[in-house]
Design a protein around this nucleic acid. Structure first.
Length: 490
RNA sequence: GGCGCGUUCGUCUAGGGGUCUAGGACGCCGGCCUCUCACGCCGGUAACACGGGUUCGAAUCCCGUACGCGCUACCA
């Protein structure tokens, strides 16, 4: 218990207050390892990370893995993987709640020894019965205190342990986001802190863990706002100074409803595999409930430099996938080429179904595509033509542009293009000009058939660039194929 | 049901009594650019939940209503 007393109180501050420049800020992220990192959890982690970094503090990672069923090693790893992907580096841990049973048990024993808690032999059935009775009588139910002064000893048979609350205690705190908050103890009642099977309850466990880990700021989802009074009571019973609390609003799904696993994309790995960038994801998440004036774009380091709890909203936010897509393209546009190439390759290989050799053409193409794709998956889709063996034609595109009228144009181009040297957009352009002038057609009539011949589709980057991205021989071969296609049909 | 919290354009938000005929961003619509698709640029649409107060003056303060969310477990 000594250890618990060491906790230092960080200067109390309201929403408008400021923190001392250097502090002992210690935040924590405490997810339960469910097999994926939920975007709500990811944002909570991000806020904790940002707050710690902003104030030169430390972030502690703690896995709340008491649900042994779901808490497999793989489930844990998935959560950590999500954190790493988002560059949310932690300074301590991961600690595991399951490994701290002894500390939880000790705390309960201390509480029992000091009379701050007592044993309760009421059974679930009895409790339920009395609860229904008082509700039927129009009353509000909290534990009626039957065992409060019964003085049950350790050998009283099956029992739970309850916290003895002073009925007139006002369990109040100044929430860093919600402001002054609190509840009367009598509205809570004597809560169970240890189950009859000896396992500690969540509220006891978090308090002991946060105390032991020296957490100065508990930043967590608003769903815990109304759990705080009880936890405050536990801190008090332990004679410990509670940390500061900041509750962040929940993230809602489409239509303002709670995020549902089947209706919404709730895990960060979903977005990752859909081709979203970590920078975009972080930026999107941080702007859900937090703002910094009119600014929209924030890099990781900028978040770490600018984040303040005072600018966190109190109302829940609806996740908007369109905004994420926009952010993603923004980051796609400014990502250094080698990096982008590396990120794209796995997506491209997946789209093609075979390995891809790096080439200058592909590298050039990536620069052309960053203006046209919102995700890596989209970009890969648009890039397949450079690396594909047998180019398939989009049916509608072929029907519209690979018509007999295009044949003489393609033939003229094929001949002229064979002479182009060097094979660059600049050298290719004049060829189109001459062919266009000679056949007296508009650019559209000329470019579209070529585009379909080269890419199989009606949309691609500029035609000269698209040509130059392919080896000259390949480009010529595809034009020849298109001519053949027009002659003989599919 | 009880307790708590929330409510500014479709969405994320700025805004802490006059400078708000409410600003930015995404989306959407229109235009320009143009070989397609994009990008870019220009322009437009669109909000203070409702009702009472307080005040010379309210998006901003107070009360109520409605709606939404959270908690209300020997779950976390």
């Amino acid at each position: 218990m000594r250890k618990l007393l060491k906790i230092r109180q960080v200067v109390n501050q309201g929403r408008s207050g400021t923190l001392p420049p250097v502090s002992d800020v210690r935040t924590r992220f405490a997810p339960s390892p469910t097999g994926f990192l939920h975007i709500g959890g990811a944002r909570t982690a991000l806020f904790n990370w940002a707050f710690a970094r902003r104030h030169g503090g430390r972030l502690v990672l703690r896995l709340e893995d008491t649900d042994r069923e779901r808490s497999t090693r793989e489930a844990e790893e998935a959560v950590l993987e999500g954190m790493r992907w988002l560059d949310l580096d932690w300074d301590e841990g991961p600690h595991r709640q399951s490994e701290r049973g002894e500390r939880h048990a000790e705390a309960v024993e201390t509480l029992l020894a000091t009379g701050r808690a007592y044993r309760c032999t009421c059974t679930r059935e009895e409790l339920e019965e009395r609860k229904q009775a008082t509700i039927a009588a129009g009353g509000k139910w909290t534990y009626d205190g039957r065992c409060r002064d019964a003085g049950h000893g350790p050998d009283c048979g099956p029992h739970t342990v309850r916290l003895r609350l002073a009925p007139d205690a006002r369990l109040a705190w100044d929430d860093l986001v919600f402001g002054p908050s609190g509840q009367e103890a009598r509205e809570i009642g004597d809560a169970i802190i240890r189950r009859s099977d000896g396992a500690p309850l969540y509220h006891l466990a978090v308090v002991v863990d946060d105390l032991d880990m020296g957490i100065s700021h508990v930043i967590r989802g608003a769903d815990h706002h109304s759990n705080t009074p009880l936890q405050l009571a536990i801190y008090a019973a332990l004679d410990a100074t509670p940390p500061q609390f900041a509750h962040v609003p929940l993230i809602l799904g489409d239509g303002g409803k709670k995020l549902s696993k089947r209706m919404d994309a709730v895990s960060v790995q979903h977005y990752r595999s859909a081709g979203y960038l970590d920078d975009a994801m972080r930026n999107w998440l941080v702007r859900l409930g937090w703002s910094h004036g009119d600014r929209e774009i924030f890099s990781g380091p900028e978040i770490a430099a600018l984040f303040e709890l005072a600018n966190v909203s109190r109302s829940s936010a609806q996740a908007d996938p369109d905004k994420l897509a926009w952010l993603n393209q923004h980051y796609l546009k400014q990502m250094p080429r080698p990096e982008l190439l590396a990120e794209l390759t796995p997506f491209l290989e997946q789209a093609l179904g075979h390995a891809v050799e790096p080439s200058d053409g592909l590298a050039d193409l990536v620069d052309l595509l960053r203006e046209r794709a919102r995700t890596l998956a989209e970009m890969a889709e648009q890039a397949t033509f450079v690396a594909v063996q047998n180019l398939p034609y989009d049916e509608k595109a072929a029907a519209k542009h690979l018509k007999p009228a295009a044949r003489p144009l393609l033939e003229a181009l094929h001949t002229a293009l064979a002479e182009v040297d060097p094979w660059t957009p600049e050298a290719i352009e004049p060829v189109f000009e001459t062919v266009r002038a000679r056949h007296d057609v508009g650019m559209g009539k000329l470019a579209q058939p070529v585009r379909v011949a080269l890419t199989g589709r009606a949309a691609s980057p500029g035609i000269y660039e698209t040509l130059a991205v392919l080896p000259q021989a390949t480009a010529l071969a595809r034009i020849a194929e298109a001519i053949h296609f027009i002659k003989h049909g599919g």
